[in-house]
Design a protein around this nucleic acid. Structure first.
Lengths: 249, 249
DNA sequence: GTCAAGGAGGCACAAACATGCAAAAAGATA
DNA sequence: TATCTTTTTGCATGTTTGTGCCTCCTTGAC
């Protein structure tokens, strides 16, 4: 990767995430921390960013871009994504479904990651375009625009021909009484199948979603391996501790 | 290969790929790195490109991502898209494959359009997210990142279960001798199948692509119904006039 | 205060670069 | 066509740039 390209990427990331940590950038851009520090120093000297201890802040007044990025900046999701990164290694076959939390995770994946990603989410697939050593297998189906995932019988059947090491599940709602639930039957079926074909399942959920209402289709949870969240409510923690599920917080 | 021709090619590649690396160009154009460096130096001096260490960047406003990239510089594609709109009516079943020209077309579609769109291109699918009366059927497969389309046997078989009224084909290269050609066999097969299941086929091609080299897989053209282009070269016009193909320019 | 994490500066090495030169290619003139 | 001239190319040379590692110093959290 070209130096200028990398520095431009740092500025782009900064515009979206409002702050960057040097050590994070080092992993995401797959260069040493020294190089990142030199980049930050140059960009600061050019006036493009504001250098601070451990990283950098974006400069000037918060200029809003009109694109649909307003929800992307979310420190909670960033933290979740960083935690989940520890479970992703080279040469794995991953299943990643939709959701902004998962999208955030994909954006944090190091550009040098090798492996295979199976996804039914066009935004996830597009976000992997720069990862030249990741083979992206897109699952077809009918596009559900609300959550931007492909669903349907074709999706289900295509999944039946595959096996994966890890399924990264975006969770809409988790509840001590009914477990994991999603807004539609179609999505529940696909999530169930994704769970079935994966050796391990990692669920990611932001704390604010724990109490969201209106989802009543229960998705199988018996194979959930990890649950990554910000702070787990005691009752949920108890519930999953009984099921040998690793909670990361 | 002439020097001038080679330098033009470098500019073309740069417009497509937004960056070039000197050592890459050396291999792709089969000349020494020294020659490439001299070319880059000249082009930079002419103001055609921006030279950086290890390669060059294209001039003009920095390009962030695929979704914004096509809007900025391409009046030609916008004109083409507008012309093609005349052939799209409510309640049609459309097949739309990849390419920035097609993406431009989709962005021009009225938000009130009703119908069904079958596509193997994630960017196309995402661009249709706001068209609430368009059902989007996404074809799965292996994502080819260069052109951002899904290809493979699954894509082919899924197409076999469908029928469409109109296939809007993005054309890489068209030539009076060999017809329409694409960079890979996989893409040729999918384009052939899309043609097969569609009643009518509309091809869109920007004039500057008429002479692009390096694509040698011929894609069936006998069912081409319309050809939308900027200005058609006489020899190509003659070729298609013999085949009852309507040329729009 | 202590101490781990982050940062500055120096060093080393590989990759990329400029320059000069000779050979090859292209073009011109007869 | 044959010969001369000009341009273009590839190679050899020393030089510069970018990067990672190392050591020592600074910061800031506890």
């Amino acid at each position: 990767m070209l130096k200028q390209e990398r520095q431009q990427k740092i500025v782009d990331i900064l515009n979206e995430e409002h702050k960057v940590i040097a050590s994070d950038l080092s992993k995401r851009l797959s260069v040493s921390e020294d190089t990142i520090r030199r980049d930050l120093k140059e960009l600061d000297h050019q006036g493009m960013i504001k250098r601070v201890h451990s990283g950098a802040l974006r400069k000037g007044p918060p200029v809003e871009d009109f694109s649909t990025r307003q929800n992307i900046y979310n420190e909670t999701k960033l933290n979740l994504a960083t935690k989940a990164l520890d479970f992703i290694k080279d040469d794995m076959v991953l299943v990643i479904d939709g959701g902004t939390t998962n999208l955030q995770l994909v954006h944090q994946l190091p550009l040098t990651l090798k492996g295979t990603v199976i996804t039914n989410s066009p935004p996830i697939a597009m976000a992997l375009a720069n990862h030249s050593d990741v083979e992206v297998i897109m699952l077809g189906g009918t596009l559900f625009k609300q959550s931007m995932v492909n669903l349907g019988i074709d999706t289900f059947e295509a999944l039946g021909k595959m096996r994966a090491d890890l399924y990264i599940m975006g969770i809409y709602k988790i509840d001590a009484q009914i477990g994991i639930s999603v807004p539609s039957m179609a999505e529940a079926q696909i999530k169930g199948k994704m769970t079935e074909i994966s050796t391990e399942v990692l669920g990611m959920v932001t704390n604010d979603k724990l109490d969201t209402i209106s989802n009543h289709i229960v998705c199988p949870t018996d194979q959930l391996t990890y649950l990554v969240t910000e702070q787990v409510k005691p009752d949920i923690k108890r519930m999953y501790e009984n099921q040998r599920i690793m909670i990361v917080d």
